[in-house]
């Protein structure tokens, strides 16, 4: 096989690059590879996250004997839909929203690798995210309360205190 770049020397480096499921094959000679100055392109970052997903899922950061108290290979199963962790790691898809809770311990390394993070910081739905919104509101109200007391506006401080109590009750109920 002749090098794709120069078309003269025989190709000695062969690599397949898969980006987002799109496969590109390169066959080039060493001189051209050096000239491109990128070593072997694609190996560091040009992979499909989808195809690597199941590989990542089997990844155990603590080693096989890391977590104390757990027996080797316990079957982790989602109570709500019956999906097992083994099934999840095979197809890379969850069965239902409760799977996230049941597989939670194992998800951090995976999410860290896919997204570089494990915690959501974006939009919050008004309804199902109510608890989170309540907490954020509670913090806000407490800050306001201190301000009012400092400025000796006791009447409005009392109103805020009542709202704080109401919110605390709501959070406790949920």
């Amino acid at each position: 096989m002749i090098c794709q770049e120069c078309g003269k020397k025989p190709a000695t480096l062969h690599f397949t690059k898969i980006v987002g499921g799109e496969k590109t094959e390169f066959h080039i000679c060493e001189a051209c590879a050096r000239e491109r100055g990128e070593g072997i392109p694609g190996t560091a970052n040009g992979f499909s996250i989808h195809s690597l997903l199941s590989g990542l899922l089997d990844f155990d950061p603590s080693g096989t004997s890391g977590s104390a108290g757990t027996k080797p290979c316990p079957v982790i199963r989602c109570d709500e839909c019956g999906f097992t962790y083994a099934q999840f790691s095979k197809i890379g898809r969850f069965g239902c929203s409760a799977c996230y809770k049941h597989f939670s311990d194992k998800l951090d390394p995976l999410l860290k690798r896919v997204h570089g993070s494990t915690v959501h910081t974006g939009k919050i739905p008004k309804r199902s995210g109510g608890q989170l919104q309540n907490k954020r509101e509670l913090d806000q109200l407490r800050r306001e309360l201190y301000d009012r007391i400092e400025q000796e506006e006791f009447e409005s401080a009392a109103q805020i205190r009542d709202r704080i109590r109401e919110l605390e009750r709501k959070i406790a109920e949920l």
Binding site: F94, Y100, H115, H120, R127
Partner: peptide, 28 residues
């Protein structure tokens, strides 16, 4: 999204955000 959210209950988790079938979409 707001219109649908007002009428239904989304699968949402405080820590993980909006829950999706594929972990590559979770969060936002």
């Amino acid at each position: 999204d707001d219109i649908f959210e007002a009428e239904t209950e989304y699968a949402f988790d405080e820590k993980r955000g909006y829950l999706t079938t594929c972990p590559t979409n979770v969060g936002t």
